[in-house]
Nucleic acid binder design. Structure first.
Lengths: 171, 171
DNA sequence: TATTGTTATACTCTATAACTATA
DNA sequence: TATAGTTATAGAGTATAACAATA
């Protein structure tokens, strides 16, 4: 019986008008935590999942390029990749044209992990949208995309990566 | 020139179907960061803002009660309150009926801070919803609330409090 | 000299376990 | 004995700066 932290107050002291901002913040955190729990079943952290996807989309990028995209410092990135490489998910290869670069490629086990991640993402989406019919889901996605555009968020860019270890949360 | 981390990959490897979950996670993080920047102008962290609101809504709660609601351990809560009390925002008072309890009350400066926070929350909501007309905002809030209910999230409960120091982010 | 990757160092944040004072 | 608050200690996470290899 892990007693859920009941009635935690909001960081947003919005009385009546402020609703969307708080709901977005609340649901976003909830969605992130739920996704973290899902990838944890694959023995992955969200950051690791993000790296695998980045390497999968564009194989052969070198480390600092990827580090910048994930928003982490090159020095942290080393240990981060060390763990992933030891598990046989990605492979470091010295770039023959310029031996200073370590290019990253997906290993067979990494391809397998990607399939698991795709499955997890679909299940995650479905679980989160429970209660909304297909039309409502499309309408919601449209409104959210409008906000994302107005806020000038790059499509597919998630700002919450720096954190390597997801928070375990009783909720 | 702080170069924004361009094209960071998503932690959610959703190809086509998975949209709402990622957008919620992305926008939620964005909203949280934007709010953190706003309260930072008042020299407050989101957690401090949350505490002030909690004390404002229910004055006289004792520390462990509030610590549990904010999702932090009693030991961390001590230093957390120390800083807030030193700034004259809240006041600790020994409960005369049971002197083990330290009850928390809003100090005059805390009331003043609450007014600033209310203003900040309204401006935050407005900035975030730029581009949506009033009808769309209501529709969006409705859909988000439906999801929150389906996910059994308590209204007004934000899970992202444990973190005391908000991430400063270039984005 | 400049840059990539790496390592080393110090610093912050957090969790856990003692300790005290009240009951 | 049990509980609220506090303090102390150790551990994890992070940032920054140095370093070696390559260009």
């Amino acid at each position: 019986m892990t007693e859920p932290p009941d009635r935690a107050p909001s960081p947003h002291p919005g009385p009546q008008g402020a609703q969307v901002a708080f709901l977005l913040s609340q649901l976003g955190e909830h969605a992130s935590q739920a996704f973290a729990r899902r990838v944890a079943e694959l023995d992955l952290t969200p950051a690791q999942a993000g790296l695998l996807r980045a390497v999968s989309l564009a194989p052969g990028q070198h480390q600092q390029e990827l580090a910048r995209r994930l928003g982490m410092s090159p020095s942290r990135f080393v240990a981060f990749i060390d763990a992933i490489e030891e598990r046989g998910l990605v492979e470091r290869r010295r770039n023959p044209k310029d031996r200073r670069f370590q290019d990253l490629y997906l290993a067979p086990k990494g391809e397998e992990a990607m399939r698991g991640l795709a499955e997890a993402a679909l299940a995650h989406e479905e679980a989160l949208c429970t209660g909304l019919d297909p039309q409502e889901r499309i309408a919601l996605a449209g409104l959210l995309r409008r906000i994302a555009e107005a806020q000038q968020l790059t499509a597919g860019v998630h700002p919450g990566y720096r954190r390597l270890n997801p928070r375990r949360d009783s909720v």
